[in-house]
Design a binder for these strands. Structure first.
Lengths: 204, 204, 204, 204
DNA sequence: TATGAATGAGCATTCATTCAT
DNA sequence: TATGAATGAATGCTCATTCAT
């Protein structure tokens, strides 16, 4: 039993090391030896915990996306007003980016890039960006629908609007990643809420 | 006298082949031999027209971004109304995506992914996504400012708004790329204009 | 615990294999796979011990020239008479050639050829034939000067004489390498001492 | 008939170009395209006159050694005194080196290096350094023998002495090639004659 | 005859993975 | 269990040579 805990802990250590290196060098340029060195173990040890380099990558992604998702879900459950929920999603996502800072923002970009790259292929099942987006859209759609029902939002094509909102969010993060100095995420966040949500809110 | 060949035309043929393969397999997984085979030439021939694999990639990018840019610029020059110009940028960009279709949309994602991946490094100067975004933002900012002056748009933080608009555009394309069946670009385009631009338009 | 290997010893094994192949096929025609096969290891293993093919070559040269130099230096330190010292240099050098036999004589020629070939370029710093000759000349010049002071040799242009002596030595070795059957190094050695040294010895 | 002359002349032009490039870059680093460019012809044209790169090299060598040999032979035929003949060989050889200067001295080193390198193999028959040395030795031996008969030289092992003389000559050239500034060929020439030949001259 | 476009054999090097210890 | 020494498949690129024009 304690053995299992050890194993699991060490696996996480290696995973953490891997994520650091992925973020720093990019997935393709990351070598097993880099991960091993960063984790402070031997090259061979890596293979005691992961079957392959690819498995390390997918494990990292899974870990990352699960963490993200639970953060959002938890926050949403505490709030009932659709408008506030929308704000929350924006805020949490952007905050996550700002707070997790350098390292994790970079690795998220790596996941993204790799997910795009492999969309027709291999890793597909794990880095299921398609599914992630689909879920996100559905989640937001639900909020939008509820908002319309409640008379908070004006009638709209909820699916397309969800896409636009997610798109705006992602795209803004992307720009921030590309050029942090040029983008003030806080300001952008306000604008996104004020102008965009303004556009979908019902007026009397 | 040697065989007479339109070097420029053949270079384009190889470039086209390369773009196909890049789009299909991703830049990293694309091997020179793949490009050669697709182009219907020998491995060595590639190097008669390009110095290296990287040069092929950057050439493809340059070709692509020049084409894109000139399309947008040309359209903008024919229109003077800020609102219409904004619409044009959206429309052209999304249209380009829709019309260039499968192949080119895929390779554009490759450029994107590669640009993100290398943002701190090598190819940087060619795949200057940072610069591209900066230019885009400035272009849109100019339109927004003119619109505010003309009283078409309400006062706003033009820089942040530009970021949000570009973000929304990119993000929407990204989702479309990921899952074409789930996204109706035409509808999304309308929503983006209606709801978002609605949010920044001045009301009496 | 991993396999324990005497890294230094194995490096020498590979170096020995490399020297054999260099001597047999010449540096340029020697392929890494040849060295690997001769050493009885895999291609990749070579790179566990040497950074590149060039490093293998320069390592071999360094090893060789250090061995040679220490042999000469040690012998000289035990003898004080200039005439005897000159004899020693000749004898040791020629003996070295004769004793190290087939393999090493051949690879020394390889070093020579490669040193000549690259005299204006790359390897220059390691295969510093220019420096080697310069040192050799100085060493002999010192002996000659001491001999003149002691009244053993007649006055002469010591620098040019040193060059001639080294030249004779090298040239004789070269001919022996080219055609061992035609040259009796032992006899030549005697002639070189008798006739040449005879020419510079002071007569009453 | 005139065609043949043209052919021959062009072949020589290419050969000259080749020799220049060989001298400048070394045989291995010389590419066919370099020779073609230097000769001012197309790459394919080279193969109208030579079967392969190797044939160019061997042709160059043959041309070079024939020229050298005839220079020495011609000079020797005009002189009957063994001592003077020995002087002539030294002088002509060293002069040749000095006069042909940069370019040809370099290519001669290339021939030498390549001859050494391939002594067990391929080009063997053309770059027959072994044969060249053998001939040289015989030529000098003949002079020495004649000198002994005439009572000009003291009795000696003529073969070994010839080897030493050739060796001295070659070795001195080699040093000059390696480091022209350090070696004054004129002075060395005098020393070689004065001291070495002094050693073999008969005294009353 | 002259040419250079086309070619592919050949090679140094990298790195994920294996496995003896 | 932990390790790192060993490995060879895989790949970008070079360049002598061929051959259609």
């Amino acid at each position: 039993m304690p053995k299992i805990v050890d194993k699991e802990a060490k696996k996480m250590e290696i995973l953490n090391a891997a994520m650091q290196v992925f973020a720093h060098k990019g997935v393709v340029k990351t070598k097993i030896i880099d991960i091993a060195t960063t984790a402070g173990v031997g090259k061979g040890t890596i293979y005691e915990y992961f079957r392959s380099k690819e498995e390390i990558f997918t494990s990292a992604y899974t870990y990352f996306s699960k963490t993200m998702e639970s953060m959002v879900q938890e926050a949403l459950s505490k709030e009932d007003d659709p408008l506030k929920q929308l704000e929350l999603i924006l805020t949490i996502s952007l905050d996550a980016f700002v707070h997790i800072g350098e390292e994790f923002a970079d690795i998220m970009m790596e996941f993204w890039a790799e997910g795009i790259r492999n969309k027709n292929q291999d890793i597909l099942d794990v880095i299921n960006l398609k599914g992630v987006y689909s879920n996100y859209r559905k989640m937001i759609q639900k909020i939008l629908k509820k908002g319309i029902e409640k008379g908070v939002f004006k009638p709209m094509d909820t699916k397309s609007t969800a896409s636009v909102l997610i798109g705006a969010l992602d795209g803004v993060m992307l720009q921030w990643i590309m050029d942090r100095k040029a983008i003030n995420l806080r300001k952008v966040s306000v604008v996104l809420l004020d102008s965009f949500i303004e556009g979908i809110r019902k007026r009397e």
